[in-house]
Design a protein around this nucleic acid. Structure first.
Lengths: 241, 241
DNA sequence: CGATCGATTGATTTTTGTCAAAGACGGTGG
DNA sequence: CCACCGTCTTTGACAAAAATCAATCGATCG
């Protein structure tokens, strides 16, 4: 139940039953976090890691004026700060975006999991997947214009949600404000609003009432130069579909 | 010799002699790569990882028009694609910037290294350090203007070079063209040229003949909102110095 | 010497940010 | 039930930042 979505849909790295139950038994607590709550602060030593069961969370770095740059968005199934087991304390903050149900896994109990070679490799993989997403985000910010960034982000999020059964490729729930989106894409919220209008007017997608409708996901993917290889999903034949 | 700089200067994660020699013995070959040579291509299965002994390399993602976005710069001591041991094939390309001397470590020989709990953790750490740098780069691209990005990048590079004894904090060699810098900072090379002139005119730093002079590293760090915590360096008291 | 690559600069256009205000919407308390 | 409030969205007018286009300059290399 708790680990259902962990590594779900990833190329040949899915958990077997033993591994799954080993992780489940390492969970010390399941907790509900309200929306918009800071869960982890940069620089504070951590003694446990967090797996998202339900809801969305984000990592971010704050600038001098307190403005956030989101550096990661996390969905159910993401072992969001597994890396704090090795990289402690963290270099960034983590907060909930929506209300979230999370599983707490103490670091002491991660040690024996990591000691199992196959499982250790899968856990390592999951942290490297975050790094791969960071790189895609770098590409997005560095090479795409504002519209392309939004298109790329929506394609990525759709692909990730599909992997955990939360999008059908046509529409999905995304409970972010336009300011959140702006903090992801490195633009102002005013400009984000204009981009969303343009995408809507061009018939590529709509984003209303926390629902994204991917009207022409093919055009969106092209606009955002999106290629999902970096997500290491199963069924790569269905790419960008 | 080969591994001298690997994890050098990092908080409490340095290699002991046994670990060092274990890695050295895993090296199958030392090779020299000419400047400006693609070493690893995205999507191609890999059977070994590469540790830089001398020279600089970069990772990048190419856009539709063939323009690169650099997503990482790598220095001597960086185990640049250790992550390909777990994440294979890679999602990005790797190329040399300068001539480089590299050590090749076959994946089969990494397996027993990873199996040693302490060493495995350190190897994992080194891949997470890359992820932490990715996040800092995301902050740079998402929240800083062009001048701030350059300032931030120079501060980061100075700090990393100091960790491996290749900068004294006043000046260091950096054999990149202005176009390389532009590809790192997500701006055009024309604009990069203007930024460098401005930083020179403002007396913050100069960049000529492949040498960076950090004239006022304090002001540079402020301009780029640079805080080196994410590099997990020893002697954090000397931060931003 | 011509060719090439990188650095530099000016003029202009495009993109994005900033500032300001109004509109929409849901939730709350009277 | 309705008025009020806060948050989020939307829009316009304008300013700032960066890209683009075009050209020149300088050094290096065969």
């Amino acid at each position: 139940m708790i680990t259902d979505k962990f590594l779900q849909g990833r190329q040949g790295i899915k958990l077997n039953d033993d591994e799954r139950s080993a992780i489940e038994q390492a969970v010390s607590e399941v907790r509900v976090v309200p929306a918009r709550t800071v869960l982890i602060e940069a620089g504070k030593p951590l003694r446990h890691s967090v797996l998202i069961i339900e809801g969305m969370m984000c990592r971010y770095i704050v600038d001098r004026d307190g403005v956030r740059q989101l550096v990661g968005l996390h969905l159910p199934g993401d072992f969001i700060d597994l890396h704090s087991y090795v990289l402690n304390p963290l270099d960034h903050d983590i907060a909930s975006l929506t209300e979230a149900r999370i599983a707490i896994v103490p670091h002491d109990r991660i040690r024996p999991l990591v000691a199992q070679p196959e499982l250790g490799r899968k856990l390592w993989f999951s942290t490297l997947l975050d790094a791969a997403m960071h790189r895609a985000w770098l590409f997005r910010l560095g090479r795409l214009d504002a519209t392309g960034r939004v298109a790329h982000f929506l394609c990525e999020t759709d692909a990730r949600l599909r992997a955990v059964g939360m999008s059908d490729g046509r529409r999905f729930a995304l409970d972010l404000t336009q300011t959140d989106l702006a903090e992801i894409c490195g633009v102002t919220s005013v400009h984000m609003n204009r981009i969303l209008r343009q995408l809507r007017e061009d018939g590529l997608c709509t984003y209303r009432q926390s629902v994204v409708e991917m009207i022409r996901s093919d055009l969106l993917a092209r606009r955002g130069q999106f290629d999902d290889a970096y997500l290491y999903l199963d069924d790569s034949a269905a790419r960008n579909g």
